[in-house]
């Protein structure tokens, strides 16, 4: 039997393998991993024993049910609008001349980075009660009341401002897998443009587009800043969202609200995990054409 390596040597080997990465790993464990564990424990433990009591109480409340339904609905609506507008935009931009493409990529990138409170205010300045577009339409002599700034319609319009650019930037690289020769081959076989898209184009791109849809859906449900800003002036009449419910409990009542915020957080965590896993699967599937 070989002599065991002395502990000191092994410790030194360990250090040489991990030391430069240790600070980052510590930060990640402290700020990202441990908090998730704490949330899950808080949601499932009551008075030192595993329990679903909190879940019954939180999910039984009408306001929380309302928030979950609205958040999911908004996520689906927003991701679908993004998909419908973003897919043709991504395809067309990917086939533009370089200079034109650079212009659009620049514009989209700026818009994609512009979120949160700043975007919420910009929305108010555009489509609020005295927003620019509101005034323009009214100046034309048309009676026009803009949607309430905290309504689902307003949230949807504001969210698209970052969602469409993110979706386009995300899917543009995938557009290059549709090869020139395929379109030529289809033409030789006297296929129409529509047939090409139905039989070849869309089936090949579908997994990528679905993956994009899924990410936008997940991100939309997690948006907090824009919604907070738009909920601003309306007090109790704002659309209820999961993230806003978490934020409100934190702002108002840290002691008793903890259980509710933990349960809602775990709901968001579950959504994130499921969509991330499906995203991975979709992409693996998409890669088969490469």
């Amino acid at each position: 039997m070989p002599p065991r390596t002395p502990l000191r040597v092994r410790a030194r080997q360990m250090a040489s393998r991990w030391a430069p990465a240790a600070p980052l790993m510590l930060l990640v464990s402290y700020c990202l991993i441990a908090p998730i564990i704490v949330l899950v424990l808080q949601a499932f433990w009551v008075n030192g024993a595993p329990s679903l009591e909190l879940w019954g109480r939180v999910l039984g409340q009408a306001s929380n049910q309302d928030a979950i339904v609205t958040s999911l609905g908004l996520g689906i609506a927003s991701a679908t609008v993004t998909l419908v507008i973003g897919s043709p935009a991504a395809w067309l931009i990917s086939r533009m001349f370089a200079s034109q493409r650079a212009f659009w990529m620049g514009l989209l990138n700026v818009a994609a980075n512009f979120g949160g409170i700043g975007l919420a205010f910009s929305y108010l300045a555009t489509l609020g009660v005295v927003g620019m577009v509101t005034l323009m339409i009214q100046a034309l002599g048309i009676h026009f009341d803009p949607p309430r700034s905290s309504s689902v319609a307003a949230l949807l319009m504001a969210y698209e401002y970052t969602n469409i650019p993110l979706f386009v930037l995300l899917t543009i690289p995938a557009m290059s897998i549709l090869r020139e020769d395929w379109w030529e081959a289809a033409q030789v076989a006297s296929a129409t443009r529509l047939q090409f898209w139905r039989r070849i184009g869309l089936p090949v791109l579908a997994p990528f587009l679905a993956a994009g849809w899924l990410l936008i859906f997940t991100w939309t449900i997690g948006i907090y800043g824009i919604a907070y800003g738009l909920a601003g002036q309306s007090g109790g009449t704002a659309a209820r969202l999961i993230t806003l419910q978490i934020g409100t409990t934190l702002q108002s009542d840290v002691i008793t609200g903890t259980g509710q915020a933990a349960v809602l957080s775990v709901v968001l965590l579950a959504i994130a995990v499921v969509s991330l896993l499906s995203y991975r699967r979709l992409l693996r599937r998409a890669m088969r054409w490469l």
Partner: peptide, 14 residues
């Protein structure tokens, strides 16, 4: 994938 508000809340607790 996880909303910042959730990370923030968990980190505050931890």
């Amino acid at each position: 994938a996880l909303p910042y508000i959730v990370i923030a809340f968990g980190l505050l607790q931890f």
